[in-house]
Simulated assay, not measured.
Amino acid sequence: MIRTLCLLAHRPDRDRAFFQRYYEERHAPLAARLFPFVGYARNHVEQGEAFDWDTISEFMVDDPLGPVRVMEGPHAAIVRADEENFLDHARLVPARVEAHLFSAGPVTDGEERRLAVLIEGERDRAMTWAEALARDRAGVSLDVIVGRDAAFPADAVFWLSGHDDPGPVPPGLVAKALRMRRYETDMVAVKHDLENEGLQ
């Protein structure tokens, strides 16, 4: 399975609140129906957090060419027109990641809250930090960026359930913690609905 993170931001004439609301109410349902996602989630940056983007989206696919075929097919115009309503394409930053799960359990707390810790520094140090935190916490994972593009602001993204402070940053790492709220689309249910409608 191929896992990708994507940083997305609002159009210059919109704001974070509009962007996140439109994404959840309009764009995410459309994308879930058109793209061959195995997993699809949006981590919305909480209001007040200083970050150049509004959302970190997670996309999982079995076929890496599946999304390409959608964007070259008959639905491409629909997707692009909807994107123009809320996001700034010039600030979109995708990154292929290598996922590491350190402890099982829920990835959010009871209020869908999650902490994203953007890490710069050596991979081994980040892995050691994740292992240490996973001893006392559930749902600890680390996404290591594969072939990092200069535009992506981290070498890895460390995920923790809730908004609790992860504690001191180990020497040799630079970390920025972001409070987020996560929304996940049930892709099994989406596929079931499409089959019932005779669209798959």
Score class of each variant (00 low, 15 high):
Ala99Met: 14
Ala9Thr: 09
Phe158Gly: 00
Ala134His: 13
Phe158Pro: 01
Gly73Gln: 15
Glu197Arg: 15
Asp109Tyr: 04
Arg113Leu: 11
Val174His: 09
Val117Ile: 07
Thr4Met: 13
Arg14Asn: 09
Asp136Leu: 07
Asp193Ile: 01
His75Pro: 10
Arg182Pro: 03
Glu197Ser: 14
His75Ala: 14
Asp82Met: 07
Ala17Cys: 05
Trp159Lys: 07
Val93Gly: 05
Arg11Cys: 01
Gly105Leu: 05
Glu58Gly: 02
Ala9Trp: 01
Asp13Asn: 11
Ala151Asn: 15
Ser161Trp: 02
Val70Asp: 00
Ala177Thr: 10
Ala154Asn: 05
Tyr183Glu: 08
Ile56Leu: 15
Phe35Asn: 01
Val107Ala: 10
Gly172Asp: 09
Asn85Asp: 13
Tyr40Met: 07
Thr55Asp: 09
Arg114Gly: 03
Arg182Cys: 12
Asp165His: 11
Glu25Met: 12
Arg181Gln: 13
His10Gly: 00
Val169Ile: 14
Ala175Ile: 05
Arg14Asp: 02
Val38Pro: 00
Phe37Ser: 07
Ala81Met: 13
Gly66Val: 08
Asn196His: 12
Arg148Ser: 10
Arg16Ala: 06
Gly105His: 03
Val70Glu: 04
Pro168His: 00
Thr4Ala: 13
Gly48Met: 09
Ala104Asn: 12
Asp52His: 13
Asp186Cys: 08
Val79Gln: 10
Ala90Arg: 14
Thr4Val: 09
His27Lys: 00
Asn85Pro: 01
Tyr22Gly: 08
Glu195Ser: 13
